Simulated scan of single mutants.
Amino acid sequence: MIYLIATILIYIVSKRIYKHYPKAYLTPLLVVPVVLVAALVVLDIPFQNYEKGTSAISYFLGPATVAFAIPIYKHFELIKKFMVEILSSIVAGSVVAVLSSFFLGYLIHLSGNFMTSIMPRSITTPIAMEVSKTIGGVPALTAAFVVATGIIGSIVGPHVIKVFSLKSPVARGVSFGVAAHGAGTSKAFEFGDQEGTFSSLSMIIAAGVTLVWGNTWIPHFQHLFIQ
């Protein structure tokens, strides 16, 4: 229980700091893991003990995704208006995310397990881990890639939006949701409620699309290149 309380307190403190000083390097998604890892090392606490004490957080990670349905319901009429653009962008983005991960791993000669673990990195953690299991990856490793992708996406995303002068809430939201899942969605809400809504929807649909890919053509595609 003490590990759970400590984790929640560290998150609350880091979130308040980020609210007053919204710098990329102060985002809770980056600060909390760093602080926790440092604490485990300094205090010589076995990770197994920490994992057991904070299992409730992992348990609620999946159900928490359902909360994204609230803004989607709120802006449902606007979503219907741009449904074709949203769906086509999500499907294209999901394919690019998987293929870019594969070819990057192929170019730098990643081993089979690393390759399959990195491919679902652009979707929310619970589903990414399931896809990883399906295609023979290491779920724990996939989770690490997902977190890294989310952090990088939330940091780089605003600069990409600025460079390309993206004004549309649809374009901004879908970009964050497809490229950086939960972390990107959190960042999208900083731009506006509509951006966050489109990002939430994109993240959820992208996860479903990638789950389908993971059970259909990804294993065959993987078999052609990985020995």
Rank of each mutant, 00 (worst) to 15 (best):
Y59G: 12
F60T: 10
E77M: 13
S89D: 06
F76K: 14
I86D: 02
I72M: 13
F47I: 06
V96R: 10
G93N: 07
Q48G: 07
I108V: 14
S88R: 12
E51T: 02
S101A: 15
K52W: 05
E130S: 08
F47Q: 05
S100L: 13
I118P: 03
F103T: 02
E85P: 00
S111D: 15
I127K: 03
K52V: 11
M115A: 04
F82Q: 11
P120Y: 00
I79S: 05
A67N: 08
E130H: 00
M115W: 02
K52Q: 15
F102A: 07
I70A: 12
Y106H: 13
A64K: 12
I79Y: 01
I79M: 06
S122K: 06
K52Y: 13
L99A: 12
F60I: 15
L110I: 02
S89C: 12
I70S: 06
S58H: 08
I90W: 05
I79Q: 07
S58Y: 04
G62N: 10
N49T: 14
Y106E: 14
L78N: 15
G93P: 09
P63T: 11
G53I: 04
V91S: 10
T124D: 04
S111R: 13
P120G: 01
E77A: 14
Q48L: 11
K52R: 15
F114L: 09
V91L: 14
M119T: 14
T125A: 08
G93C: 00
L87V: 13
N113L: 13
S58D: 11
I123G: 02
S94L: 08
S101V: 01
I45R: 04
G53N: 05
S100E: 01
A92L: 14
I123T: 07
G62Y: 05
H75P: 04
S88N: 09
A69Y: 05
M83F: 11
L110E: 01
N113I: 12
Y50Q: 07
F114A: 01
G105E: 00
E130V: 11
A64W: 08
E51N: 13
I90Q: 10
A56V: 14
Y73D: 05
F114Y: 07
M129A: 04
Y73K: 14
S101P: 04
A69M: 13
H75I: 06
S88F: 08
T54Q: 03
F102S: 02
I57P: 07
K81L: 06
F82D: 12
T54W: 00
T125D: 02
F76G: 07
I79W: 02
A64D: 10
A69L: 15
V84G: 03
K80S: 10
K81M: 03
E51F: 01
L61C: 07
F76T: 09
I108E: 02
G53V: 04
F102G: 02
K52D: 15
M83V: 12
T54D: 03
Y73V: 10
A97M: 12
Y73T: 06
A67P: 05
F103M: 01
E77D: 15
M115L: 14
G93A: 00
T65C: 07
A64N: 11
V84N: 10
K74L: 08
K81T: 08
L110W: 06
F76Y: 12
L61F: 05
T65I: 15
G105P: 03
I123W: 01
S111V: 04
Y106G: 06
L110D: 01
